[in-house]
Amino acid sequence: MKTKPILPLACAALLAACGATPPSTGDEVAAVAASAASDTLTDPASGARCDGKDLRLTRDNMQWVIDGSCRDITITASHGSLNVDDARSITVEGSDFTVLNAQVGEVRVGGSRNTLNLTRSGRIQLDGDANMVLGTDIPEVGFGGSDNTVNASGKPKIHADAGTGNRVM
């Protein structure tokens, strides 16, 4: 007796419901899934190359060194560290995490007690509490959380401070 795979049928039904043309064969479904999966590195081994992909770190108590340029980095892990060359954006949702980065576009920190050492960055938004950001070139910062510290070579513009006890040095 031959059974029909449920996942390809579910994917086709979902795509059809969204108005998209669903893949017609199992091979096409597998190709679409592989393409989507290859755009994001999730918890790779230290020393992996980002090569323009998104990076997602979810495992607590880990240290990563990632080579190359990443698109968007999302960190939900806690009690760890990341050393990465550059990225379009970094979002830190975990706590007690350290990020070392040479160049990044936008930075958002929702977790608490994180340390980010950024050489050059775009706008930084600190929504968590007790975070520290060190950097050479930080043009703008916003605070949604409390007791955060930004120490930059030049004084960044503060676009909003909705918290208490935040400092720019």
Rank of each mutant, 00 (worst) to 15 (best):
residue 118 L to C: 06
residue 104 V to S: 03
residue 109 V to D: 04
residue 69 S to M: 09
residue 9 L to C: 05
residue 99 V to P: 00
residue 124 I to T: 10
residue 123 R to W: 08
residue 92 V to L: 11
residue 20 A to M: 11
residue 23 P to L: 04
residue 55 L to N: 08
residue 126 L to P: 09
residue 126 L to S: 08
residue 36 A to V: 13
residue 138 I to E: 08
residue 100 L to R: 14
residue 38 S to L: 02
residue 70 C to G: 02
residue 129 D to M: 03
residue 31 A to P: 10
residue 50 C to P: 05
residue 2 K to V: 14
residue 94 G to S: 06
residue 168 V to T: 12
residue 124 I to G: 03
residue 90 I to L: 14
residue 125 Q to Y: 13
residue 90 I to R: 04
residue 23 P to Q: 04
residue 57 L to E: 02
residue 164 T to P: 05
residue 162 A to I: 03
residue 152 A to K: 00
residue 140 E to I: 02
residue 78 S to K: 00
residue 48 A to N: 01
residue 135 G to D: 05
residue 164 T to S: 15
residue 63 Q to P: 00
residue 77 A to H: 02
residue 130 A to C: 13
residue 63 Q to C: 09
residue 40 T to E: 11
residue 93 E to G: 12
residue 101 N to S: 15
residue 8 P to M: 08
residue 157 K to S: 13
residue 142 G to H: 05
residue 161 D to F: 09
residue 147 D to G: 02
residue 20 A to Y: 12
residue 29 V to F: 11
residue 59 R to H: 09
residue 134 L to I: 09
residue 5 P to W: 10
residue 128 G to Q: 02
residue 92 V to D: 04
residue 34 A to Y: 00
residue 98 T to F: 10
residue 116 L to D: 07
residue 162 A to N: 15
residue 128 G to C: 00
residue 127 D to Y: 11
residue 79 H to D: 12
residue 141 V to R: 06
residue 136 T to I: 11
residue 50 C to S: 15
residue 137 D to A: 14
residue 18 C to G: 13
residue 70 C to H: 09
residue 149 T to G: 07
residue 58 T to A: 05
residue 16 A to H: 13
residue 134 L to E: 03
residue 64 W to K: 06
residue 155 K to M: 12
residue 152 A to H: 09
